[in-house]
């Protein structure tokens, strides 16, 4: 790693074909309420959008 934590070598993205590795991850929301990611696509398709950062 180098300045600002950048990668020295170019990395490849590696999105999964199924979300089983994500479903059981539990994260707090903006109010501190914990959510299991799998709950978001239980009833309808869900778009999970990872932000770069909050800047």
């Amino acid at each position: 790693m180098a300045i600002f934590g950048t990668a020295v070598r170019k990395q490849r993205t590696n999105p999964p074909h199924d979300a089983s590795g994500l479903a059981d991850i539990v994260l707090p929301d903006h109010e501190g309420v914990e959510h299991r990611l799998g709950e978001f696509w239980r009833d309808r398709p869900a778009a999970l959008i990872w932000l770069r950062h909050y800047g």
């Binding site: 999105p15 994500l22 479903a23 239980r42 778009a47 999970l48 990872w50």
Partner: peptide, 13 residues
């Protein structure tokens, strides 16, 4: 970096 996944109710991306 970030990104987007769209997941169906059956868990497939």
């Amino acid at each position: 970096l970030g990104g987007v996944l769209v997941v169906r109710p059956d868990g497939s991306v």
